[in-house]
Design a protein around this nucleic acid. Structure first.
Lengths: 197, 197
DNA sequence: GTCTATAATTTGATAGAC
DNA sequence: GTCTATCAAATTATAGAC
């Protein structure tokens, strides 16, 4: 069942992807969500800022789960990261280069003006890094290397989105994918004790 | 001689770094630049958008020149990239995590609403990639590898800024630097014909 | 080139009926 | 929970004197 609250969050997410946080007005949200400002303030008494936090938390979890579902289908991390970047490039192109995710944009807009929003973005980024790190360790990448690798992965996703979206071309995203994959390939593996020892 | 036009551009750049494009008002700019709105419109008849384009073009050139001056001092690309990321991390920390550069933020805010601003950001990114590629080729990196490497460099800078600024910690930037440096080290070199042949 | 004054619109947010 | 009406403040931009 789609509640009014859900409709507001989904519509706001779509608007933030296109216009960012400061570029989206409550009247736009009201219209797109088919909910009056009274309704918006009923569900989000904290106003636009509280709504923004809810959008970031929701979208952050969706993207973490997307990564984890791709990871679950690809035991080899090289395959998983290749697949993730390929999918991201396809989605970007099909959407006519609308940002796939509003979190990075909002993070940059409000990092110096809203602690609640900044901390929501921090939660999202940290959860992605932790998820990627966990997957890498379970795929026998050395734990000491996994953290840096996961951090670099999230950074390149963010950087790739900005470049590809601004240049309106998926080449940057695909060039970056090659290097992330190379870094994963080159990473030291966990050495397991064998039965023969 | 510092002209009024210069003052407006510098002040706007500082405000955009902190609050983004949509988060900065003309009244803030007027106050920070010590110039009335009449003056702002005198120098930028196209209003806020035209001023934004001027800011992006100016800052884009400044950062390209910064990279080129670091490159000129370090013949070995590994040293150059290491130095660049180290400096960036230091600057970010010293400024209490204010964005060092407004271009990526503006690019994400307006990519779907202002073609003049989007194209200005595209010019800046492309000039950085071209500059890094040119330097890599002159440092005997294989030209086929140099383009992808330069693209990845710019993407990781952008991604590293978002992560480190949002997490208020330079670790991401430093983790990323390690991987960029590793990618440069692993890149194929140009094989030169020698006199002995 | 710089100034003040102001137009026209939109912003985020609230009050109170139903 | 949803609605309409409305507030005060801020927004970009312009006009015209100096």
């Amino acid at each position: 069942m789609v509640t009014t609250r859900d409709r507001i969050i989904v519509a706001t997410n779509e608007l933030f992807r296109r216009y960012g946080y400061n570029g989206t007005s409550l009247s736009q949200i009201s219209e797109a969500a088919e909910a009056t400002t009274g309704s918006i303030y009923h569900f989000f008494p904290g106003g636009k800022e509280a709504l923004g936090v809810a959008v970031i938390d929701t979208t952050g979890a969706v993207y973490r789960e997307l990564f984890e579902s791709i990871a679950a289908e690809h035991p080899d991390p090289v395959d998983a990261f290749e697949n993730f970047f390929d999918s991201a490039a396809d989605v970007l192109e099909e959407s006519d280069f609308v940002d796939p995710c509003p979190i990075g944009t909002i993070a940059r807009e409000v990092a110096n003006t809203s602690e609640p929003l900044r901390r929501a973005a921090e939660r999202a980024f940290s959860s992605w890094i932790a998820s990627a790190e966990n997957y890498l360790i379970n795929s026998d990448i050395d734990p000491d290397a996994a953290d840096d690798l996961a951090t670099m992965f999230v950074a390149t996703v963010e950087g790739g989105f900005v470049l590809s979206r601004t240049l309106r071309c998926t080449d940057p995203l695909r060039a970056i994918a090659l290097h992330v994959v190379a870094a994963v390939s080159a990473a030291p593996r966990t050495t397991h004790a064998t039965l023969a020892e």
